[in-house]
Amino acid sequence: MAGRGGFARGRPADTHREFVMVTEETLFDGEFLKKLEYLHIVSKRAFAGQYRAERRARKRGSGLEFADHRAYAAGDDFRRVDWRAYQRLEKLLLRLFEEEEDLPTYLFVDCSRSMADGHPTKLTYACQVAAALCYIGLAHLDRVTLTPYTDHLGRELASQRGKGQIFKVFKFLGQLASGGTTNAKESFERFCRSKRPRGVAVVVSDFLDPHGFEDGLNMLRFSHHDIFAIHVVSQADADPELRGDLQLVDAETGSTHDIAATPSLLGAYKKVYAEFCDELERFCARYQLGYVRTQTEVPFEDVILQVFRQNRFLT
């Protein structure tokens, strides 16, 4: 079942399987981790958290940041009465503080066969980016959920909190393998049906979805998640080095097409690919979705520390 392949070792044989070697040793050195700890995933909106954490939540609570006053009601804690206001106004007003909770963060990693393309592969690159984002979230006590998908949702790494969980993340990512076709709509629809708390949804993918990228992103958008689209692009996608008479094989579906790779044809392809990227970017801009395009040839540290910050995905 090629369409159900991917995600992890031990699944049925898949000739296109590629395993992602994501480990702490190979990815992150200590200095990089320190830099990551200073970063925060930016959410345009405040979401209700489950645990106390460092994120400003919508509800008022016992945080340090003053939020508002309200009239005292019987049973309120006298310690929160604003006596200075009582002196001036002779009204019992209660000081309200912002509640700091964790941020639900959902990381969706595209594990379809098309992600096996590039040097390094787009999947490897996506896993590296996901690992870094996970670490950032975990370091700030956010609840991070890592979910691979192809044409369905894969087994997810359930909500993790705290930096100590990063090794689980590494292990999880290290077991991901590419395979199967892409159907983001189907995958995200199932995700949304599961009534998850709203939060930041980060989709790391090449968005080469035969069914179109719009439907998948719309599913998350309609569920009121704060969406970031991280578009992983390989050089082979953007500027394929093809020459002569070839039979192109679709990595996901296995369908073929004979072409004569002429300069004009390659030029036309590059033009179409650029239009595709612009289309995705315009879509994200129209619906205020975060969009970051990154090439696999760009070191992912640069992407994390510079590109994401420039795009206000991280601060």
């Binding site: 979805d209 082979a236 394929p240 008479d245 039979q247 679709d250 990595a251 036309a268 392809y269 179409v272």
Partner: peptide, 21 residues
């Protein structure tokens, strides 16, 4: 004649090009 097979991430965009061409 069987041409050399080259795997690409997706034929999605190639098909657009070929239809145009």
């Amino acid at each position: 004649l069987r041409h050399p097979r080259v795997a690409v991430a997706s034929l999605l965009l190639w098909e657009r090009v070929l239809v145009d061409n």
